[in-house]
Design a protein around this nucleic acid. Sequence first.
DNA 1: GCTTGACCTTCCAACGATGGTAAGGACTAG
DNA 2: CTAGTCCTTACCATCGTTGGAAGGTCAAGC
Lengths: 154, 154
Amino acid sequence: MSNQLNIGHVASETGISAKMIRHYETIGLLNAPKRSDAGYRIYEHADVHKLRFIRQARNLGFPIEQIRELMGLWQNQRRTSRKVKELALEHIAELDERIRELQDIKQAITHLVKHCHGDERPDCPILEGLANSPGSEKASKAKNNKKHLKHNGG
Amino acid sequence: MSNQLNIGHVASETGISAKMIRHYETIGLLNAPKRSDAGYRIYEHADVHKLRFIRQARNLGFPIEQIRELMGLWQNQRRTSRKVKELALEHIAELDERIRELQDIKQAITHLVKHCHGDERPDCPILEGLANSPGSEKASKAKNNKKHLKHNGG
DNA sequence: GCTTGACCTTCCAACGATGGTAAGGACTAG
DNA sequence: CTAGTCCTTACCATCGTTGGAAGGTCAAGC
């Protein structure tokens, strides 16, 4: 009976933690499976397939909401590949934007670092740059739309 | 009397919302200012200076904890520029890693997109790629240490 | 006085995706 | 019967920021 598709089995088979499988169920990304008499979740092979799809999409950085759409398209036999490609291109554009932002930041810091001796002296252009750079700030609010600039989420 | 450095004034002067200024105080990034009889926060010009420093560092993507370190170094007259440069280089390394991750992802999706017609036909290599790619998953856990791959923090 | 409106205060919740932990029930092997 | 592993729900933490609610304060006008 150990080959029952309970959550642990599915988790190890898909590489998605039991925690996340339950989470995907609560947010409606995965349909709620049947339960055993004891209340255990019992999955079908189709669920494993779906979870693999989700994992792949997550690995590619698709946000949950886009994965929801992708899964809808995936299950829909009458979808057009045009719509799927649109979603993918949209995602690529977002990736490009984030890459560009990070590169801009990297360049700014690199510029500061270049002028820092990095020795025993306290003199440090990096700190000076952080303290002094933007002339006024009231105006910069409009330009700086980098809210989505997240540091490492891990 | 309107030139009192209360939180609203400081907020508009630094471009940091009053909300965030209070937040920085609660997490100990900014020291708690004096209060008026009514309990209003009354800041000094040094605080404005500090907040500008914080804002710049955030704009460059430094996480709060690193900003805390940077501010310590900034205020410390006996610091060495070496330590500051180390922190900055560490941050650059993290940026590089994130950029690389995003580029890898972008390349993978781009590869899928290239083979998709993007027309009225339902046939779609993108969805197939998402559904089928990784042969087994149990092993892939070790390789995939991209936990910190966050989508847009919005 | 009394009201209006802008400002301030604290506390609580949310985003997105995941990890952790706790308390308790269910199962399996010895 | 017991030990150990699995399952259940539920809450808290991350990370930085924003939003709202409910209430106190202040400066102005009538």
